[in-house]
Amino acid sequence: MKRIVIADDHEVVRSGLRAIVEARSNWIVTGEATNGEQAVALTLETRPDIVIADYSMPIMNGLEVSRRLRALHLRTEVLILTMHESEELLTEAILAGVRGFLFKSDARKHLISAIEALLDGRPYFTSVLLEKLLHDYQINKQNKSDMLLTSREQSVVQLIAEGHTNRSISAILKLSVKTVETHRASAMRKLGMSSTAELVRYAIRKKLVAP
C-alpha cells in the first residue's frame, strides 16, 4: 500500500486530490495538512511515500517543506502543485530537491502519472514549464537586473508578509535569529527595498501570500 499526504490550505482542493488518489486501490491518504508546518509533522508521523504539497501554503511553502524533509534525510518524495506558470519557480523547486512539479489545472489529468513516476523513482515535471525553461536557457537572457531571491530568502519574505517576527521565523525554519536577519537583509538589498511594507507588497505581487 502506497502512502500519500496531501497539503493544501483549501479544503475543496484537498478533497479533490483525495478523490483522485483514493480511486487507486493500492494508494491511501494518510493525512491532510493545511500548512507546510503540518505537512512536515504529518510526514514525520506517517512516513508517506509521497507528499502532494501546494506551493503557496501559509507558514511554510511547498519548497520549504521539501527542503526540510531533505534535511531530515527522509525518503519521501514531494510533488509540488501550483497555479503559477513560472520557470523561476521551477528552477527554485529543483534546487530545493523537488522531483515532481505540476499545475493545479493539470492535476485531474496528470496527477496519477506524476505520482506513479515518483513512486518509480522518476522525476515528473509539467511539460509547459520545462519547454519555457529550456527556451530561456537557449536564448540566454541578457537582462539580469532583477536578481532572484533564493528559496530560503523567499520563505523568510513570505513569513514576514504573514506577520511573523524574526524570532517566530527562526523557530519555524529552525534557523538562528541572526541567520533570519541576514536572509531578510539580503532579500531587501536584492529587491532595493527599505521597509517591511515594501516586502509585504512584493510578497503579494509574487503571490507568496494572498492579498
Rank of each mutant, 00 (worst) to 15 (best):
L111G: 08
R3Q: 13
V157K: 02
S15N: 10
V180L: 12
S170I: 09
L79Q: 12
F101N: 07
S170C: 10
T76A: 09
V180H: 06
K109L: 14
V200H: 03
Q142D: 05
I28H: 02
S195T: 15
V65F: 06
E85N: 15
E181W: 05
E64K: 10
P58S: 13
E162F: 05
S15H: 11
S25I: 14
A23I: 13
L118I: 02
G62C: 10
P48C: 07
G163F: 04
E162R: 02
P123L: 01
T91S: 14
S15F: 08
G192T: 10
R67D: 13
Y124C: 02
E22H: 06
P48N: 09
R70D: 02
I204E: 12
A185I: 08
A203W: 01
V65R: 00
A7G: 05
G100W: 01
A117T: 10
A33R: 03
S194M: 13
Q154F: 02
S145G: 02
K206N: 06
L69R: 00
L111Q: 10
L89V: 03
S15K: 15
I160L: 15
V157N: 02
A171V: 14
Q138L: 15
I115W: 04
E88P: 00
S194I: 14
M1G: 03
R152G: 01
A187L: 09
T34I: 13
L175V: 03
V40S: 02
T34N: 09
Q38D: 14
A117P: 12
A71T: 05
V51T: 01
T76I: 07
E131A: 12
F103V: 00
L148R: 14
L69G: 02
T165R: 08
L74T: 08
H110V: 07
A117M: 02
N140R: 14
K178R: 15
K207I: 00
M83C: 09
T91D: 12
E22S: 05
R184G: 08
V177F: 00
T82I: 03
R184H: 10
I139W: 03
V78R: 06
K104T: 04
P48A: 07
L134P: 00
K2C: 05
L129K: 04
P58A: 08
K109E: 07
V51I: 10
I112R: 15
M1D: 00
S145Y: 10
V40T: 04
L89R: 00
V157L: 12
E87G: 08
E88V: 13
K104R: 12
D49W: 04
R108E: 05
K109N: 13
E85A: 11
